[in-house]
Design a binder for these strands. Structure first.
Lengths: 344, 344
DNA sequence: GCTGGGTGGTGAATCGTTCCATTCTGGCAG
DNA sequence: CTGCCAGAATGGAACGATTCACCACCCAGC
């Protein structure tokens, strides 16, 4: 019971293998009568093309590789979604690899994709992969960087302007009448964190009567956010900021929870902090949970799935013509206002 | 600048292509001297095996397909993680397809995987795919059902006992002294919801002094949970349940938020509901956010990544020997107690 | 009746690896 | 010195779809 091949189809339809291939790949070149017989034969035999053979001949597969830092981060799942949608338009599929910030896994996926001769690779790199990507390119495998602006013009890249995002967030806080801003986040070694902070600095610098303090954290998690919240709660009320820009939504949610819990268990109502009355909070990423928080969170939204789509578009163009000039696409983030920063 | 093939390596190492292949696949069959020269040549030329050619020869690829209902659901990302880990042990990679409950997309991925001649398919089916899977099997592609017990013994399956999970949850509530239990969830058309409810019923049936009411929802989301929360808040306190079993963690979080908000904005403190003092809440799935909720949520944990691992193990066994008897593996869920159900 | 052009169809060569039957080599026993 | 053997290496036939140079046929035009 071997799977039928193109030869079996040809025999059954009483045409040559070439004709079957033409029906499949250049339908206009075949007479209607022959086409019909071939299609009937395919149907009857349950014939399915063997991708391996096609790829072998074609020299590369019709898949593109996507290497992300964290498959559980909604930002990346959205990017992946956009990439898939765009790829399927051109008949490509997407293979996703998850590195978990581990350079070994990153190298592993690059090896795998190279063996598979994918048409191109989309990657949010961890370490310095330019040499590796250069080698892929020599092999005819295009590469586009995601969420990291490229080193000069060696590779195209698609990213978001995190500095502008930081500015957007803090401008909004200031516009709603806040003056004592705190940035809560870390580690600053993460480019995104650093740039969001720079944006915040720029915004504050433009308004002489405002101040910016920093609460450094060692991670972008809910728990770290709570720690920071406890720390702020411990201060005398007069000493607290009146607005917080959190480096991402998870931290913002942690802060929110810390403030709420203090209010709920409330030894005295003075220990609680009301959001947004006492302190406004804005996060970053606009994850699904942001709108579902106890107090719906204002946030900075990134056009995640558009990023994926754009990256695929560029990738396929470059896969088609390797000599195309490389492009650096930078998207602008967008302010989403919800209850956590409503003016009093 | 064409990529070097095994022939180029052979020429450079001054051996035959067969020997190069042997170095790659049966290292013990080649003398150390030849091995060394071949490896050196591979290194110098930057040779990388062409998977397409290997697959063509082998008849099938060294990848397995994984078709999930919702890539954003942490349960499935965990399953995928487990599957990847287990697959990589045997040198297989995992291609993940996301159907979003859409039968067309499901069919699309099955087609794709069939063309790719994957070694096997792991699937959480939407509709009735047995006919389709049967055809894949005829082609030598094994299939294992995930999170859905198989139709009799035509296919192996790996799932979790949701009835037991429901029993576990409600037993725990009753053991902690609760008597008026409410099940909040829906739609009941989802097997998991229905079975969790059955478990709850069984548990209550075993304790004569307890009651079970149902609050039906149209989805498993935070927002639906809040709606349910508002509904319960609207009742006179004496009429409220003293414990809630939510069909999943998202609903539980929604309930929690509704109760907290009522307490916080509190026109009068009587409108608020304290968790767990007034009402205990237990969720299902034990997602990351459960432990990070304002009041850490008790929940029922499923061994998600173990499910993925087991499914891959079975799949690879069956891919190896199609005549193996099919197995139905059912895992038992586990109770995780946190603050939301602590006894008063 | 012959030529030229166009259409529809053919079949062999090709992609790069694997695998197997065959050949080669050197060592050793008789 | 010959014969034998095991281990090492070889060469070439697959795998299955694609592609391309080529052919057969038909019709129009002279």
């Amino acid at each position: 019971m071997v799977p039928p091949g193109i030869r079996d189809v040809a025999a059954r339809a009483e045409v040559s293998v070439g004709t079957v291939s033409n029906v499949l790949n250049r339908p206009t070149k075949v007479s209607p009568a022959a086409t019909e017989r071939v299609l009937a034969a395919i149907e009857e035999l349950g014939f399915v093309r063997n991708d391996a053979a096609r790829q072998l001949r074609a020299g590369h597969s019709s898949a593109i590789g996507l290497i992300v830092l964290d498959a559980r981060n909604p930002f990346f799942t959205d990017v992946a979604r956009g990439a898939e949608d765009q790829a399927s338009v051109s008949g490509f599929s997407v293979l996703m690899g998850n590195t978990d910030d581990n350079p070994d896994r990153e190298a592993g996926y690059l090896d795998l994709f190279e063996q598979q001769r994918v048409a191109g690779v989309l990657i949010s790199p961890i370490g310095d992969v330019t040499a590796r990507l250069q080698r892929l390119r020599d092999r005819g495998i295009a590469a586009v960087l995601v969420d990291r602006s490229g080193d000069a013009t060696t590779f195209s890249s698609v990213s978001v302007d995190d500095v502008a995002g930081g500015r957007l967030a803090v401008d909004h806080l200031i516009d709603s009448g806040r003056r004592r801003i705190a940035f809560v986040g870390g580690p600053f070694a993460i480019r995104q964190v650093d740039e969001r902070y720079s944006g915040a600095e720029q915004s504050v610098a433009g308004h002489p009567d405002t101040t910016l303090e920093t609460v450094r954290l060692s991670g972008l998690t809910v728990l770290e956010g709570r720690r920071a919240g406890a720390q702020i709660l411990a201060r005398p009320a007069a000493d607290r900021p009146d607005a917080i820009f959190a480096a991402n939504d998870l931290i913002a949610m942690g802060l929110l929870q810390a403030f709420m819990m203090a209010g709920a268990t409330g030894i005295s109502s003075a220990t609680g902090i009301s959001v947004p009355d006492d302190i406004a909070i804005i996060g970053y990423d606009d994850i699904d949970f942001a709108s579902a928080a106890v107090v719906p969170l204002s946030s900075i939204r990134q056009p995640s799935s558009t990023i994926g789509q754009t990256a695929v578009t560029i990738l396929l163009e470059e896969a088609d013509d390797a000599d195309l000039p490389h492009r650096q696409v930078v998207f602008q983030p967008e302010l989403v206002v919800r209850q956590s920063t409503r003016s009093e």
